[in-house]
Design a protein around this nucleic acid. Structure first.
Lengths: 117, 117
DNA sequence: CTGAATCCATACCGATACTG
DNA sequence: CAGTATCGGTATGGATTCAG
């Protein structure tokens, strides 16, 4: 967890430091839909390797955004979910989802205009 | 009804592809406040190098998010601003700003509790 | 002032092998 | 299944130089 002294003073920069990379944003998208096992996340986040997924989950856990629960069974079962802090990021992902949806829609409209039927 | 997995492309992934990196998000933060010259951006975005700033501005320009206006004067003067599309990203940055502000505030409150005067 | 073009270090990431 | 460790290629980014 970062201490206050290590944090940049700009709120946007603070947020960017914690979740401002491709993989973390996509992992958050998945966990906002609910608790997921490691293998589920691996399947859901397209193109991510096991190593990178692990690294990002560790970072999110360290920063108090993700909770990790290990079930002592065989074979191992580990569940990841958002902490309260993590869930509070929802508006950011929601805004990105809304923008992306619009972007794709407008793109298709333009395509339909320039090449009707 | 289509599930997220069945869609050709995820809206969040689309957004992430266009602006999902540290520098672009910080550049957007600056340009949302208004038109800026290259040197102003360089100064405002802490730690960015000229090369990386140029590369990211070119990418944002290519994607229709940023407008670039060159004034044919000596010394050169180039102004960057958000296009309409770029400005439509405002809710995302605003959400990040709000979250970051809260995060910092809560952090300071915790600190004050654990070490009261 | 803006920016293109180098060179070069290192950060990142995929693949693989191995463990409990 | 979940995770660590290692290796090596690639991408990223910083510093510098040159130019319009």
């Amino acid at each position: 967890m970062l201490t206050k002294e290590e944090l940049p003073y700009c709120p946007v920069a603070t947020t960017v430091d914690l979740i401002g990379n491709k993989w973390k944003l996509l992992i958050l998208r998945e966990l906002l839909a609910g608790t997921k096992r490691f293998s589920e996340l691996k399947r859901a986040v397209d193109g991510i390797s096991q190593k990178v997924l692990t690294e990002n989950l560790r970072a999110l856990e360290r920063d108090g955004i993700v909770d990790r629960v290990v079930y002592p069974v065989i074979p191992p079962k580990v569940e990841y979910s958002l902490s309260e802090l993590g869930d509070s990021l929802r508006p950011i992902i929601t805004a990105m989802q809304a923008w992306g949806t619009n972007y794709i829609l407008n793109k298709e409209e333009l395509k339909a205009e320039s090449a009707p039927e």
